[in-house]
Nucleic acid binder design. Structure first.
Lengths: 256, 256
DNA sequence: TGACTTCAATGCACATGGCATATATGTATT
DNA sequence: AATACATATATGCCATGTGCATTGAAGTCA
């Protein structure tokens, strides 16, 4: 911080008079700030994430998380929203800040601080986003650890070939998985990954996919029904060759 | 991102040949990145945090979290470590990234993205840090919500007078408290707030201070002893006028 | 109509937390 | 020295939640 502001000017900020010290750029190292987004969905037993094929150096041809540089007058969250809209044509999805990555050499070009958000969508919205432009594709996240500690992940394509990720994006995806697992225990985050209505078994499968382990069916039922976050629709599953299950929806908090 | 790099040069980065696109600064908005630290301790039934009295505009005379601008070749964590050492004369403490704050007008001078870390210390180290320079002081954190949702906090001095915090630092402290509460449930984070040895009741008091509610003594004992993270020292508390309690220490993970 | 499959409800064993009670072990008091 | 007192520590009981097995319910299909 500068010891003394060289000049003080009174300006009006949001209705209140404030003091503005004229900024001396030469006294600070200025850096680029990027916002990247890990868009995650859970289906077919795997977590999937959206990737963009890079058309330029560095990491030409490899895949990277969708991202962009922060603009002067937007908040971090607005930047993440903008990235989702421009790269995945998505709006109105669950979005939360994950972590900020700032290793000095993570981008070989220049120093880039990347504030990473993660977004959760259901299968339908994910598939729609992943079948857009040619550079956009999805990758299955194979988690290579089964223990407690977070660790490296491998991202593979539909033919199970490993997709090398650009920059430190494999670390970022790993942290997103770790965060998601932690959230499931105490937050109703699983619902963000579901469509409008779903059966209890479908909800359980999504939880199992995120956690990477099987869950007890009866306990899961009881726990979910007792949580008060589920609302029976009265309608039943269709298109199955056995007894159809009841369809539930995520209860609005206003009902509590 | 630039559509085409204007020039490509092969350079050696960490032993591997990489491509370096010459950076065109005019194409991006460049910003300042700061690293702030919420240093927290728990004693006398309150959470406390370290503050620095500002000697300059804006927010002259108000208190702010210790912080500094990120230097060109240090990592975010190194910057946080440097802040702790230079402003609080502390080293070797628990440090973890909390959140990144980037509202466009949070600093009236210029756009500053602040990556915030939180650090946990025991009472002795906190008091030593808070009695350093004259600008350094501590503030009690009064949490004004008792429900589940995170909310605003009030920081007061030793005479219970509210200390207005500069910038959005009250929000930052609030988020640190929220994170700390969440961590206690599943992480051995409470130990970071304890000294070398402690009794079970002292550990319980710290947990209660963080959580803002009382805990059942017997359950707490059983849970802590069953966790395998405590190690009896064989020594007993001294200086109390009743039966002294056994002193415990945090078990090294290597013993597991 | 009966076989088959999955849904959904119920009962029971077990682990854990909240709570009450009893005993242990130090200091302070008489 | 004996006793009061305060807290530490151990044990038992009950309510609750989870894992697991059993049973009945409700669809499709041959």
């Amino acid at each position: 911080m500068p010891k003394k502001p060289r000049e003080i000017t009174a300006v009006d900020v949001e209705g209140e008079p404030q003091f503005l010290a004229r900024y001396d750029a030469t006294k600070f190292d200025r850096l680029s700030v990027a916002v990247d987004v890990v868009l995650v969905a859970a289906f077919e037993g795997d977590l999937s994430t959206l990737l963009i094929r890079r058309g330029e150096h560095p990491f030409l041809g490899q895949h990277a998380l969708p991202g962009g540089f922060l603009k002067k007058n937007e908040t971090l969250e607005e930047a993440a929203t903008r990235v989702l809209r421009s790269k995945a044509n998505l709006a109105g999805v669950f979005l939360e800040q994950l972590y900020t990555f700032g290793e000095p050499r993570r981008d070989p070009r220049t120093r880039v601080i990347s504030v990473v958000y993660y977004a959760l969508v259901d299968e339908a919205r994910f598939r729609a986003a992943a079948t857009g432009e040619r550079e956009v594709r999805s990758g299955r996240i194979r988690v290579s650890w089964e223990g407690e500690t977070g660790g490296p992940v491998r991202v593979v394509d539909e033919k199970n070939r490993t997709l090398p990720l650009a920059f430190d994006h494999a670390d970022i995806v790993g942290m997103a998985v770790k965060r998601l697992r932690g959230k499931l225990d105490y937050a109703p985050v699983g619902f963000q990954l579901m469509g409008e209505t779903f059966t209890l078994l479908e909800l359980q499968r999504v939880h199992e996919t995120v956690l990477g382990r099987t869950l007890n069916k009866d306990s899961f039922r009881r726990r979910m029904l007792a949580s008060g976050q589920l609302e029976a629709t009265g309608r039943a599953q269709s298109g199955v060759d056995h007894r159809p299950a009841e369809l539930y929806r995520f209860a609005r908090p206003s009902a509590v």
